[in-house]
Simulated scan of single mutants.
Amino acid sequence: MCGRFAITLPPDAMAQLFEARPDNDLPDVPNYNVCPTDPVHVIRAEDGARRLVAMRWGLVPRWYKAPNDGPPLFNARAETVAEKPAFREAARARRCLIPASGFYEWTKDETGARLPWYIRAKDGAPLAFAGLWQDWTRDGESLRSCTIVTCAAAGEITAIHHRMPVIVARADWAKWLGEAGHGAATLMRPAPEGSLVLHRVGSAVNSNRAAGPDLIAPNSA
C-alpha cells in the first residue's frame, strides 16, 4: 500500500517536468507528510493537453451519498482495478499521474512499535505514481478525487512491505495518460530492481500532523 508520501517539487517545476498547464489552486509545497484526504497534485490529460490540478487523495465513488460515506479509497490494487466497481471505469478512461518526492512504509519492532521508512528514487528524480481519478456530485456538492495504484512489492521494498505504489517511468507517461494508444495495463508492475533506495526515519511521521524536512532525515534508532 501507499498511505503517506512527500512532495517537495514546486508547482512550476512540476508543470515543466510533466509539460502540463498548472491550475491556480494547487496545494502548498513542500509537504513532507501527505496523508489520505489531503489535496494532492495530479497530472491528467484533457482535450489533447496535460493539466496540473488539485484533487482529494482518496477516491470517492459516484454512489457515495457523501465524501465520508465509506472508507477513503486511497489505494487501488493493480490486480483488481479492472474488476472493482469503484475503479474499473476510471482504469479505462480516467488515469492520471501523481508526483511525489518519496513515500513512507512501516515495519514493526519486537515490541510492536511502528518503524517508518522513507523510499525515493536512487537518482533523486521525482516519482510519478500511477493514479485514477473520479468526479463525484451530489445535491449541489462536487468533488474531484484520486487514488494511487499499487502492485506487489519487488526488489529492496520486499524487506519492509509486500506492496508498493506503481511508479510510471517517464517514457511511459503518455501511455498511462492515454495519449499514446493502448497498453496501460502492462505498466502496472513494480519499479525496476535497484531504482529505489530506502532508509529509516524518525517516529515523528507516525503522526499525520507532523511536518517539516526532518521527517525524511535518516534515523538509525
Rank of each mutant, 00 (worst) to 15 (best):
L115H: 05
V149L: 12
S101R: 08
I148G: 01
A184T: 03
G155P: 02
D109L: 04
V149D: 01
A113M: 09
D123E: 10
D123C: 01
R163Y: 10
I148H: 13
I160K: 03
A91W: 15
T158Y: 04
L198V: 11
W136I: 13
E179L: 11
E193S: 14
W173R: 05
A174Q: 15
A184V: 03
P165N: 02
A174E: 14
K108P: 04
E110M: 13
L196W: 01
A128F: 00
W133C: 04
S142Q: 13
G124C: 02
S101G: 09
I98V: 14
S101W: 07
G181K: 09
D123Q: 09
A204G: 09
E105F: 09
M164E: 08
A130D: 03
A204W: 08
H199W: 11
E141S: 15
T147R: 07
L187C: 03
R92P: 04
A171M: 11
L127W: 01
I157P: 00
R200A: 07
W117R: 07
H199G: 01
T107W: 02
D139M: 12
D172V: 02
P116D: 00
S207H: 05
G178R: 13
V201R: 10
V168C: 03
Y104K: 15
G140R: 08
T107F: 03
A153M: 05
I148C: 01
D135Y: 14
D109S: 06
A121Y: 02
H199I: 11
L97S: 10
A93S: 15
S142L: 09
I98D: 01
I167N: 05
A169M: 07
T137L: 14
E179G: 09
N206T: 14
C146N: 06
A185N: 14
A159F: 03
L196K: 12
A204Q: 14
P192M: 07
P126G: 10
L97C: 08
G155A: 07
C146H: 02
A184F: 11
G194S: 07
I167H: 04
N206C: 06
W176I: 01
R120G: 00
R170W: 04
A185G: 15
I119F: 06
W133A: 05
C146Q: 08
E105M: 12
A159P: 04
V197G: 12
G183P: 08
D172K: 11
L198F: 05
